[in-house]
Design a protein around this nucleic acid. Structure first.
Lengths: 233, 233
DNA sequence: TTTTTGCTTTATGTAAGACATAATAAAGAT
DNA sequence: ATCTTTATTATGTCTTACATAAAGCAAAAA
């Protein structure tokens, strides 16, 4: 009895749209279509695959949602260079993420900022160093509003992402921003963490100008110490 | 003339589905629905919003694609906790990503692995160290097949992601795997890089067992030196 | 009583046809 | 040649209809 059941294979329970979706992705990949190329009209696809237009439409909506195509109203769709993260951004609604995930995303930021030291040191230009100096010159004092201090943090660290020269990384950061704001405001992290300053923004700039990647990694780790402390205890 | 144009407001060019989509997201967020709660049927939603079922369906497809809801066939949809990266995974089709993005994603891996040193050192357990030792004990020699060596790389580094205790991070790695494979096989990176071994897997395990986060960061950076060299020259 | 089988209900999956509308191209007017 | 009008076309939206899978329930079988 048991072994009889085990012999049975899962039967394909995918819907028509599921198969059409796969079919279309395959088509796009196989045909090696370039960015900007138009894809056939809904009616043509429906005819070619022998399904109704509603099925095609639904499959196309999916492709659009995963960023494979871009639809122009009343004009059809074209292949697009998937902006990997623009879409993720839509899903980044802190209110609907559970606490564990929010925490993990917060960790991810720390990981990224420490890990990108090599990219920064390799690619930073003198102009960018000047810009960084200008930013830290306007560093807010402790007496200024919380919101203003946060904004300054974002400006400084955002600049670092920019210097990394990795667009994907930068988009990632942009996407994570609302989460940080939310995590800070919510009670997710222990509020009563020590607010000691370790390596300051200015210290980081000094390292970028005169130091090494290794020094920057360690400096950044120290700079983020408060955050780590709040995560680990 | 100019100031006249500036006074004009962008007119709303969104489609009905666009608005219904926003409406539904708002509904879900506002009602503070919990994971697992069912949402009204398509017909009810169509009635309530005064639009046709097809519009509702299309909006629901979008919500499903961004992971806000999960549909059970013929039974309706329920709220779900969005798996941030499951969707991204679908878009990770190396063939449709342009070279620049592929390169950036490759960099991202290096950034992550260096940056996650602190998470590893904070959370690694004695059992996990034992597992790591087992993995490096089976290290393939240079004479074994390329594919086998790659597989071993994945096993080892995958374990590190696991030890980091950050599920989001781990999913991220899983998602990036096909890209690495592709990047290696394509001519995107200079093939003739020095294939010198710096810190070995075994060296990393030693650090994890007896060293510090700082040492692990530096060790990992050294371990990945070949990759960096190929990126930076 | 327990288990199996079949029925009914319900919501979604799929189809087909119709018309509205916006973007573009073609034709016509100046 | 430039501007305006008019087709043309593909998508956007609506409607209706029917097929089908899931779930619960009732009837039948053990």
């Amino acid at each position: 009895m048991e072994n009889m059941i085990n012999k049975l294979e899962m039967i394909d329970t995918s819907s028509l749209v599921d198969r059409v979706e796969m079919n279309l992705i395959e088509l796009l990949v196989k045909k090696n279509l370039k960015v900007g190329n138009a894809i056939p009209t809904e009616i043509e696809l429906a005819g070619a695959l022998g399904v109704s237009r509603s099925v095609i439409r639904e499959a196309l909506v999916r492709l659009r949602m995963i960023g494979l195509i871009e639809s122009k109203k009343h004009r059809g769709a074209i292949i697009t260079n998937p902006d990997l993260l623009a879409l993720l951004e839509k899903r980044m609604i802190p209110q609907v993420l559970d606490d564990g995930t929010l925490r993990e995303i917060f960790e991810l930021r720390l990981v990224l900022e420490i890990g990108m030291a090599d990219l920064i040191m390799e690619r930073v230009t003198p102009e960018q160093i000047a810009e960084l100096k200008k930013i830290v010159a306007n560093e807010p004092t402790h007496t200024e509003s919380y919101q203003f201090q946060i904004q300054h943090e974002i400006t400084f660290h955002g600049k670092l992402y920019e210097i990394s020269g990795n667009e994907t990384l930068k988009k990632f950061q942009k996407m994570l921003l609302p989460v940080f704001d939310y995590v800070h405001k919510s009670g997710l992290l222990k509020k009563d963490a020590v607010v000691r300053k370790f390596v300051s923004h200015k210290g980081l700039v000094d390292i970028i100008e005169h130091g090494s990647a290794e020094m920057l990694r360690n400096g950044m780790r120290s700079h983020l110490e408060n955050h780590f402390a709040r995560l680990f205890h």
